[in-house]
Design a protein around this nucleic acid. Structure first.
Lengths: 341, 341
DNA sequence: TTGAAAGCGCTAACAA
DNA sequence: TTGTTAGCGCTTTCAA
């Protein structure tokens, strides 16, 4: 019955014990220069003694600042988004900001309610993935004048705050590379395009370049699957059994590519001799596996860091977030080669 | 000059426009059953019209509830922690809670300030990794009566809220497996033990079982390294060149194990014939790679989900978080076999 | 250099 | 069933 909820001390407790006003306590806490050193020391001693710490909600209500930033990512079960989130958090942490994180599971509708929830929480800025978000999200962001940045994308014509790279050009680079190698029958095993503009842009890039060379994707070797090793393996098997295996397969990401590669090895299909494979992301493992995976180097951590710095300085200067294009270079390794004659 | 900061509408705005009191608006917002349907509809219409949404800080200050949970993890650049965090977020999201996430980078001192920061933010519960936290953290948690749970650990004698598995027993299982196979010269390539009780516990488990069999770790093949493929490769190379390679290597996690495995393959050291290798975590890839990795199946997502449910129900019932032990079974696959005669 | 006091937007008694 | 009102803990004028 005795719950003795001895509450957290408040500034009033500190003020009384130190014989000062709450205004002075507040000044001490906020490092105001106009508190006499002696007084400051006295107050700090009491703060220490009572184990006081500020009540963020009260502070936010009074000052209209939360020192909180938000991020909503599709998932953390993709090393690339986890890395970006990690970098973002580390960067804002250094500026005494705290991260409110939400996972949308690639669902734009869910994302909308999550963004709303973060806005209610008073986030001073937001990191989003991609440029595809619901109308409502964009309206909310505009109405509340929230600093935000769409990472993982670079589409200047959209006039959106982008810190990322051109998925379309990355897709194009992959296509050019394979065509340049002499491939004519190329398939695409991409991620699920629904609600994912990065996937769509990459596919457009691939198709455009193929078309420019008078080619087209092998539709019988083109499909969308979830990002998983198992799915990659399954698809490779299906292509083989259906007799639709092309000479090159562009995979939506490294995880899929790894699945395709491992299944090919299991089936004694020589890679890259009989089948060229490309990935996307440049996961740490891809350079160590044999054959090493040809892939696109996605600057995941850099996007996280830069997005944080951009938002933080936008908040500081009161200016809009500055866009910035990053490189996502093609890394030619061992899974791509000219097709067997 | 014209910044026209047309502020967010407040309950007062809604109340006036709807011709009711703010109390009624509050009731509508909180789904109080004692608001007449007609009135409710009128208020909701105005809310919709003005695009109003509640101010979480004000709400928190008045109600003393934040609907926020915190998590501080060592890093997100480890798929296993990312998976746990992902599961935790998904679970609390479903209960309308929001996640405050902080990354400690395996630094207990840093963790302390982060926990403090989350507490200031008013988190109603906290997910932590492991049982090793600073005194100050435990004091803070006790004093504020914050619901928290240490995942990734199961040490009932410590009387701490644990939802996890016994790292020591997992280490023991690995040792038993290898000894049972006939290995006598066993090395350990663990993660950095500093500030990481999981690593220490696993090592203890290994050493204990080895001792029980009258054996000891090959110290010349035992070391601590960062969790990276590259590091794993480097270490394998060093052991080979120093001529200290044992017949089996217990690796701190799958990433290290993969590095060791790939380097062994590169050097034409037959695995498992000449060298048995074990990992830890059961990353999705490990079952697909050849030879498939013998490892410990860590219930990362389950810990995230269960921790969330435990904290949420502790908050609901006002009772302490219930501990729970999970299995972390040994998965014997293809990288372990009897040592060559 | 310090203090008094008025809110910030909301919830929750308490009244009606 | 609805309204009135007193805070929640803090910041921030404004005075002193």
């Amino acid at each position: 019955m005795v719950d003795e909820a001895e509450k957290q001390p408040t500034q009033l407790d500190i003020a009384r014990k130190a014989g000062v006003s709450t205004a002075t306590v507040s000044r001490v806490l906020n490092g105001s220069p106009l508190v006499k050193p002696a007084l400051r020391a006295r107050v700090e001693a009491v703060i220490e003694q009572l184990g006081y710490y500020p009540h963020a909600a009260a502070r936010a209500l009074a000052s209209n600042r939360t020192f909180t930033l938000g991020a909503v990512v599709p998932t953390l079960n993709n090393a690339i988004f986890a890395a970006c989130t990690n970098a973002f958090e580390r960067e804002i942490q250094a500026s005494n900001y705290t991260l409110l994180l939400a996972v949308s599971n690639y669902d734009l509708g869910a994302e909308e309610v999550l963004v709303r929830r973060l806005l209610e929480r008073g986030v001073e800025g937001l990191l989003l993935i991609g440029n595809a978000h619901s109308e409502a999200v964009y309206e909310l962001l505009a109405r509340t004048r929230t600093n935000y940045v769409n990472t993982w994308a670079w589409e200047p014509q959209l006039q959106l705050p982008n810190i990322g790279f051109s998925n379309r050009r990355a897709g194009a680079a992959l296509a050019d590379h394979l065509v340049g190698l002499g491939h004519r029958r190329i398939g695409l095993v991409s991620g699920i395009a629904e609600g994912n503009d990065r996937v769509r842009e990459r596919a457009i890039g691939v198709r455009e370049r193929l078309a420019a060379h008078g080619l087209a994707l092998e539709e019988a070797a083109t499909t969308e699957i979830r990002y998983s090793v198992r799915e990659g393996r399954r698809v490779l098997g299906e292509f083989v059994e259906a007799g639709t295996l092309p000479t090159a397969l562009i995979c939506g990401n490294d995880v899929i590519a790894l699945g395709v590669l491992l299944e090919a090895m299991e089936r004694k299909i020589p890679v890259p001799e009989a089948l060229s494979i490309t990935g996307f992301d440049n996961l740490p493992l891809t350079e160590h596996i044999r054959p090493a995976l040809t892939t696109i180097d996605v600057p995941a951590s850099a996007m996280g860091h830069l997005a944080a710095r951009a938002i933080l300085s936008a908040i500081g200067d009161g200016v809009p977030v500055a866009s910035r294009e990053l490189e996502a270079p093609l890394l030619v390794r061992e899974t791509t080669a000219p097709p067997a004659a």
